[in-house]
Design a protein around this nucleic acid. Structure first.
Lengths: 121, 121
DNA sequence: CTTGTAATCAACCGATTGGTTGAACAAGGA
DNA sequence: TCCTTGTTCAACCAATCGGTTGATTACAAG
């Protein structure tokens, strides 16, 4: 399966049901049955979803009698946030500089990132 | 396919090749062939990846002669960031308050979130 | 009009995914 | 010990995914 951690996290959150579970776990820990209750799928399906979230490092499960309370782990979010922010910043900066506009012009040499264009807006 | 926008974005970024393309597009716009060059997959495969990214709203394609330059759209990142930050904040806050720790204690009344424990390390 | 290049469409393939049902395991409580 | 509850395991199924190859469209240059 998805080798790297980042892929696992993104993939885990690509499913709306799993995102909803995360949202609910952000409020309070819950057992598998509690989590399964609102959705009209089997408990087994929810158990599977939880394994995906666990493999992604998004949740952890402890043992409390025969119950297995699920707990949301906030740390992994940082992994995503860092990745996203990095490229978002680059992309926005590039947009701000109109760098790409210069590149798409046929007459511009444009090797140096020197914004000679008057960027008023 | 994944109905909502958030699912599409997360799903699109769940693939390492697509994340790499996004990373490269953050530096500069590129054509399909340019993008395909570093990977040892067919151009068609890259074209498919681009469609996924486009459907997620992460990139846009213009037309320039027979070339179709691909451009990274930064806006959609916000959608993810907002979602992530929201639940990360909730989870971290809850962790900070030791709310869940109190909940798992059998003898504590635990209704008030008063952190009486001296957290030195 | 023909050739060459950039990209997409179409059909196919094996692996993974999200779901199901049925059986098994784990841990109290009677 | 047997029963009940909570959860997971196992096998299966249809749909989707990432990849392939071959044909096709779009445009520019001879």
């Amino acid at each position: 399966m998805a080798a790297d951690a980042l892929s696992r996290v993104f993939s885990a959150l690509a499913d709306p049901t799993r995102r909803d579970m995360v949202a609910r776990l952000a409020v309070a820990d819950a057992t598998v049955n509690e989590l399964a209750e609102p959705y009209d799928v089997s408990v087994q399906a929810v158990s599977k979803h939880l394994r995906v979230l666990e493999d992604a490092g998004l949740v952890s499960r402890s043992r409390e009698a025969q119950r297995r309370p699920v707990h949301l782990e906030a740390e992994v979010f940082d992994l995503m946030t860092k990745w996203i922010e990095r490229y978002r910043r680059e992309a926005e900066e590039r947009y701000r500089r109109l760098d790409d506009v210069l590149r798409s012009m046929p007459d511009t040499p444009a090797p140096t990132p020197t914004p000679t264009t008057g960027e008023s807006s």
